[in-house]
Computed example of a mutant assay.
Amino acid sequence: MVTGTGTRWLAGALIVGLMTLVGPSAPKGTLFARPLPAGAPDDVVPNRVMTWNICNPCNESGQNIGRAADIATYAPQVIGLQEACVRDVERIRDHLEYQYGLVYHVKYGSVLRSWSRCGGLPWRPGGFGQAILSAAPMTDPVSVEYPDGGSEDRGYMAVTTTVDGRPVRVFNTHLAQRRQEAFRAKQAKVLAAAVARHDRAIVLGDFNAVPDAPELADMWALATDADPQCRASGTGTCEVTTDWYSKFDYIFLRGIAPVGHEVRLTRYSDHNLFHADVELTDPA
């Protein structure tokens, strides 16, 4: 016979077991799936790309479930994440697949291993840096740490994948923190030299600089932002992408035409989601 205390213990164990079953490994539409708004895509949008600094550390309750729901609302073909811990990206990917039916491949561009940033055991901390999620397989991945990251290690990663049905080189970066212009200028030169090798490229990232900042000149010389009103001169009307009302996040397009874009607020980061639909044409 099971006593009252034993019954409560058994019930608790069963609940924990059930929650384990319906967690990230559970089928689409289970207990933890957040409903998507009306009009959300049923499947990945093949010509849509997104950049998002997901904020770390940000301790919003249920943040990876919420991040997955925010991504699923727009279902881009390619997503570039910055300030990304490997464990968080793994959970986001699982939620996207098992709760929303969106299957992504993942490549990482971790630049440091940080227990304070990403948890884990002190002698086995989590990887921190960039990540790219793509609905199509990715090839030729590279991960480059900038020679000097400033107050924190920074870098870029790049892969070749498919956008709008065509192969394209996709970069993802995070430049040095605010008020570190000299470091960003050197980092942008390293990045621009890599981008310049490709006639067609998409560069996603948090550049920590406003459009007319001198350190972005090398990128503007190669590409345009997916926001057609946003230009290096600062005369255009750039949609802000951060909680402090600055434009820091870019989708630079080289040899690729923008079709539309949107910046959306999110509760799960101090950066907004910035996504764009693009059209790829064969290089001339």
Rank of each mutant, 00 (worst) to 15 (best):
M19W: 15
T20P: 02
S25E: 12
P27R: 11
T30R: 04
L31Q: 11
P35W: 03
P35F: 02
A38I: 13
A40E: 10
V44T: 10
V44W: 02
V44Q: 02
N47F: 09
R48Q: 08
T51H: 10
W52V: 09
N53H: 04
N53D: 04
I54G: 02
I54S: 07
C55P: 14
N59Y: 08
N59H: 14
Q63G: 07
N64E: 10
N64Q: 10
N64L: 07
I65H: 07
I65S: 07
G66Y: 09
G66Q: 12
G66C: 05
R67K: 12
R67H: 06
R67Y: 10
A69I: 08
A69H: 05
A69C: 08
I71G: 00
T73E: 01
V78D: 01
I79S: 14
G80N: 03
L81S: 02
L81A: 05
Q82T: 09
C85A: 02
V86D: 15
V86Q: 14
R87C: 08
D88C: 00
D88G: 02
E90T: 03
R91H: 12
R93Q: 15
H95R: 13
L96S: 04
E97K: 15
E97W: 13
Q99D: 14
V103G: 10
V103D: 15
Y104H: 05
Y104T: 04
H105D: 13
K107L: 03
Y108M: 15
Y108H: 13
Y108I: 15
Y108K: 10
G109M: 06
G109S: 09
V111D: 00
R113V: 02
W115K: 06
W115E: 05
S116I: 11
R117M: 11
C118A: 00
C118E: 00
G119P: 12
L121K: 10
P122Q: 01
P122S: 06
P122T: 02
P122K: 03
W123H: 14
P125Q: 07
P125W: 03
G126S: 14
G129F: 07
G129C: 05
A131D: 06
I132L: 14
S134N: 14
A135Y: 08
A136Y: 05
M138C: 11
M138S: 09
T139K: 14
P141V: 04
